[in-house]
Design a binder for these strands. Sequence first.
DNA 1: CGTGGTGTTGATTACTTTCAAGATGTGTGG
DNA 2: CCACACATCTTGAAAGTAATCAACACCACG
Lengths: 215, 215
Amino acid sequence: MYAQAAAKIELPTHLPHQGSSLAFDGTTVQPASFFPAGSEIYAQGEKAGALYQVEFGAVRVYRLLADGRRQISAFHLAGETFGFEADATHHFFAEAINATGVRVFRASAGTDMSRQLLPLALKSLTRAQEHLLVLGRQNAIERVAAFLVEISERQGELRQVELPMSRIDIGDYLGLTIETVSRVFTRLKEKGVIRLLSLRSVEILRWDTLLAMGE
Amino acid sequence: MYAQAAAKIELPTHLPHQGSSLAFDGTTVQPASFFPAGSEIYAQGEKAGALYQVEFGAVRVYRLLADGRRQISAFHLAGETFGFEADATHHFFAEAINATGVRVFRASAGTDMSRQLLPLALKSLTRAQEHLLVLGRQNAIERVAAFLVEISERQGELRQVELPMSRIDIGDYLGLTIETVSRVFTRLKEKGVIRLLSLRSVEILRWDTLLAMGE
DNA sequence: CGTGGTGTTGATTACTTTCAAGATGTGTGG
DNA sequence: CCACACATCTTGAAAGTAATCAACACCACG
């Protein structure tokens, strides 16, 4: 329905697979779906039920206020699984950030996947709770530092961090405006903590400083 | 270890039981533990494993930054269950806000409780994600409105809301200072949206207005 | 009936947002 | 391959919101 063949193939983001691949019993594995940049994977209010594992690319999961303010609750990179809900309805939107490949799983009727799902749900819960601390109690520079550390860790602690998302997405994840995000990047550059190889590629020059900033 | 008999019995907060009572197979149900106001139920870094169900009273779950800034990620009222973690370690602190009774469950060796735990974990996840929207994208008055609506709904949509927690706790839950929380309460009073019956008891005079504020 | 903790209110400061303009980058078509 | 156009990003100035600092009021407890 939302998966559509791309008329024009974009280069997949080059994120390595992380986490164990899903291998559920009692599931129907559909052939990997391709989502072009910006396309919707599911919408708030839709019927839930399937699970999604990112093969390549990146996904944003978010919620909107009536006036359009947006809060991204999570980014999902290659290897990560998302889409589980407390009831039969999606409470959030999910969109492909870049050209993204997603594997879709659906439980066969009568199959109980609790055992497989619980650790994934708990991992998401811990991340969300840690993100609450960032949004509730950290200032702009601390938020961006925490963000860079988080992404770096999820990409294997590499010094060079690839950001699959725009400044707007980063702002909507960190509860900041795009301008503030941009200014903080500039400040971190001036302090010699990071270096921008390109808009979407950050080299961390002083890991310890960044880590201390993000607490 | 942390549960201790209260030298002086305080009156339990009069919250009604909500949610279904836990009735797990393969668990050891310890006799209800009593925690006096302010006492620790578990600490960050401690070994996790047990589940806790609030019998009466209220619990705050929080995390600290190095300099002491605190973010309360959740309040748990009577009937609610908390304490599950992604790994064997607690990533948060849990404290009794008031005199609180807690029932403790431990899984017997080899028992799989995924089926019972998953819905609870998913419920917590949804709440945390919704809280992210509040902290990331709402201003002070919207946050307090959303908070009052949330507590009211969890207490059965009653017009009269009993707050088991202090202004500091509310501030640390909403990412605001105690002064700002206090000022917002005053503004809501002036607007005729709420009325304070006492410091810890709020009457909602205009539910629709409050709901619209909190989105 | 004092005393310490909690809450309220006021004045000032600090930080982030908003509004605005310009720069940089990317994609498209010639 | 270059030039143009649109989107994204950066930077600056002004405005707004919440934090901080400070004083006082209120409440609960001993």
